[in-house]
């Protein structure tokens, strides 16, 4: 391989890395713009500190959504992405990102509930989308705690993995339902369509990867 070919292949890897990072930045930027550009009616009726808290809570929610989606992508361990970033780096990021998801989810829950009062929690069938969010938060906490305290909880790897994976995919389904039905921002056609397209794409991507992996292990 000559020098120009080496430079070209390095540039390609860097280029892909940059493209992926740009994609993540765009996704994050777009997600964080939603609560401002498609302001919810709930925000109209909040003034002063309550408005700031609710807006911050919505931003934390959008951040959780994006981080959770990235978490699922990283968990697929696609060889193309692993070659670009290194599997050890990705695994470390997956672990850190899990904690970040739990933290942003906690901030979201506290800041969104605080303006309405902590003794006025959305509980009951009337608040089903909110309650799905509460279930999701609990699942995220269980997933993160069980992953970081596996030895403390005396969970063997096989059992932990058997629970960890389905919890992750179930969280993805729940976050879609929660965002789709709870947020007034996503009643607007553009964010609603984008949410559907992104989740359908993610489900398809995950499905294809899992199917391919199952096929390979069966062949072996």
């Amino acid at each position: 391989m000559n020098n120009s070919a080496k430079r070209s292949s390095l540039f390609t890897a860097n280029g892909y890395r940059s493209l992926i990072m740009l994609g993540i930045a765009l996704l994050l930027g777009g997600a964080l713009a939603v609560p401002f550009y498609y302001e919810t009616q709930t925000l109209w009726y909040k003034v002063g500190p309550d408005k700031i808290l609710l807006r911050a809570g919505q931003l934390a929610g959008m951040l959780t959504l994006v981080l959770l989606m990235l978490q699922i992508i990283v968990a697929q361990r696609v060889s193309f992405i692993e070659n670009l970033f290194g599997s050890a780096h990705l695994m470390r990021w997956h672990r850190i990102n899990g904690v970040l998801v739990a933290c942003t989810a906690l901030i979201h829950v506290v800041l969104v509930l605080a303006p309405e009062g902590m003794n006025n929690l959305p509980i009951g069938k009337k608040y089903l989308p909110e309650m799905i969010g509460e279930l999701l938060f609990l699942m995220i906490l269980i997933t993160v705690v069980s992953s970081h305290c596996r030895s403390l909880l005396r969970l063997d790897y096989a059992t932990w993995r058997m629970v960890h994976r389905p919890l992750g995919y179930f969280a993805l389904v729940l976050v879609f339902i929660h965002v789709f039905f709870v947020s007034e921002s996503f009643t607007h056609i553009l964010p609603r369509s984008l949410l559907i397209v992104i989740f359908a794409g993610l489900a398809l991507f995950t499905g294809v990867i899992q199917r391919t992996r199952l096929g390979r292990s069966h062949w072996k």
């Binding site: 009616q41 709930t42 009726y45 303006p115 309405e116 009062g117 006025n120 959305p122 009337k126 608040y127 007034e184």
Partner: peptide, 11 residues
């Protein structure tokens, strides 16, 4: 439901 929740709040 969101309006109901607001009506139940301290507001």
């Amino acid at each position: 439901s969101k309006r109901d929740k607001h009506l139940l709040s301290a507001d």
